[in-house]
């Protein structure tokens, strides 16, 4: 069944269209004036202006490694993040902690820990899977580089971004 669309009956001045056009011009004109005088501001001028202060707590930026309050690297190289990582951005080479190290009882640590930021999709699976709470997604989002090598974050860079996280799991602390 066809639907009959009711068309409104136009008065003669409405049929001239000129009042309609004028009305439209007033609407666009008002927007023009408002934007021009700065009364209405929608666009943020990145990178001069940034929204960093307003990023939510759960924002998912670059993944990074953290140390605990005693400067121990939390990561024990269990490679679960490497396993879970959907784009396979993470490469870990585990190594044994030498027996003269302060934390020798932890036995294992990452010898190298590389995250290929060209591959990373910021999904946060690594953070979710980590049993040692050693990897976190920070708020850094502007990851740039001029070569592929530069886009691979190595262990040093990851700890640089990550910094220290206090509290959380403490299964390796002095008491235990």
């Amino acid at each position: 069944m066809a639907i009959v669309v009711k068309r409104p009956k136009l008065r003669w001045w409405e049929q001239l269209y000129l009042p309609g056009i004028a009305k439209g011009l007033v609407v666009t004109g008002r927007h023009f004036i408002n934007t021009l005088t700065g009364r209405k501001k929608v666009t943020m001028q990145y990178p001069e202006e940034k929204w960093d202060a307003n990023l939510p707590e759960h924002y998912r930026g670059a993944p990074a490694l953290v140390t605990d309050e005693q400067q121990r690297e939390r990561c024990v190289a269990c490679q679960l993040c490497e396993f879970i990582c959907p784009p396979r951005a993470i490469t870990i080479k585990p190594e044994e902690i030498p027996s003269d190290d302060k934390w020798a009882k932890v036995e294992k640590r990452p010898g190298s820990f590389d995250i290929d930021m060209i591959r990373c999709i910021y999904c946060g699976m690594c953070e979710e899977v980590c049993p040692e709470q050693a990897i976190f997604l920070r708020k850094d989002y502007a990851i740039t580089g001029t070569s592929r090598d530069e886009m691979v974050h190595d262990k040093k860079k990851l700890y640089e971004i990550g910094g220290v996280r206090e509290g959380l799991v403490n299964k390796w602390n002095d008491l235990k």
Binding site: C78, Q79, E82, F83, P94, E95, E96, K108
Partner: peptide, 9 residues
């Protein structure tokens, strides 16, 4: 083999 590779890989 100690700490060389996780078995599931």
């Amino acid at each position: 083999f100690r700490f060389q590779m996780r078995v599931w890989f």
